[in-house]
Design a protein around this nucleic acid. Structure first.
Length: 283
DNA sequence: CCACGGCCTGATTC
DNA sequence: AGAATCAGGCCGT
């Protein structure tokens, strides 16, 4: 099945830039679990070719469009953020890289697990939780598992989560899962809420600080002005913007949001990707 | 308001 | 080789 698409799209960078943790590359194909389906996809000249299970491809197609944010007008977004020279350079390097519209629940737990961790380990944690507490799904002889429900993780409890290798994040995941299972807050409702209100609701959850909250807002709750400040973005801003050199980390986000504007989140993703691939040099 | 150290764990670095 | 350091932070003091 094909999702036709003829606008800028850089699928490898989109899926491998660290905003989602369940995509695995096998040659030119990517395998991942979205919308409770095991999905296999690749980019072709005509768009995105994919297959999935257990649901039909007719129902997954529109959802993949949504997930990949194919309706974002990248050219317009580029015009808005490319007044900045550093962003312009990064866009030239990774043109077509898109933000994703992920499931907010999975996104929230994944980024709680990201604290003081690294991408391979976060992926292993997410995979372990899915295998232990999700439902198996099979496609082309490959079996993965859906991401567990809030109830499943809440019932699992801190000890079983520690056994999966989450470390000190286990208590945060258990407590936040309980809160979400109880509907406080209703994550999907936050898509309709203004940025500041959604941010405040997320910050009330255990294990969620400003950085994690902004990741969830940007990667799953349609807040394109969100601006997560992690170690890589901090390095990038300090090195590339004199105004930021001695700003405390807590003040960097508001500065960046004012500087980059309503699509600051897209600017963030390009700067992050560029600075991270550049490595630990210069700090 | 800001600075600082501890926290699970495993890979990488010294 | 064995000990620090670091990894997409958060929380309490």
């Amino acid at each position: 099945m094909l999702v036709p698409f003829d606008r800028p799209l850089n699928l490898p960078d989109t899926l491998e830039c660290g905003q989602a943790f369940r995509w695995q590359r096998r040659g030119e194909w990517y395998f991942g679990v979205v919308y409770n389906n095991l999905v296999k996809l690749r980019q072709t000249p005509g768009g995105i070719e994919f297959s999935c299970a257990p649901d039909g491809e007719a129902t997954l197609g529109p959802r993949l469009r949504d997930y990949l944010r194919l309706d974002d007008d990248l050219e317009a977004i580029y015009r808005a953020i490319c007044e900045d020279e550093r962003v312009r350079d990064a866009v030239a390097m990774y043109r077509g890289m898109r933000l994703l519209r992920q499931d907010p629940w999975e996104c929230l737990i994944s980024f709680i697990c990201s604290a003081n961790s690294n991408v391979p380990r976060i992926s292993a944690n997410v995979e372990a939780m899915s295998t232990a507490f999700g439902q198996p799904v099979t496609l082309d002889g490959e079996t993965r598992s859906t991401f567990p429900t809030p109830e499943a993780l809440a019932d699992a409890g801190e000890m079983k989560l520690r056994a999966l290798g989450l470390g000190f994040r286990a208590s945060y995941v258990a407590a936040t899962a309980r809160a979400i299972a109880d509907g406080r807050p209703d994550l999907f409702a936050l898509r309709e809420a203004p940025y500041e209100e959604a941010l405040a609701a997320l910050l009330a959850l255990p294990g969620v600080g400003d950085k994690v909250a902004n990741c969830v807002l940007l990667f799953s709750l349609d807040k394109l002005e969100a601006f997560p400040v992690d170690v890589w973005i901090e390095r990038a801003l300090r090195e590339w913007y004199l105004d930021c050199q001695k700003l405390p980390r807590a003040r960097m986000r508001p500065w960046a949001q004012a500087h980059f504007g309503p699509y600051a989140g897209y600017a963030n993703q390009y700067l992050f990707h560029r600075r991270r691939l550049q490595g630990r040099a210069k700090l």
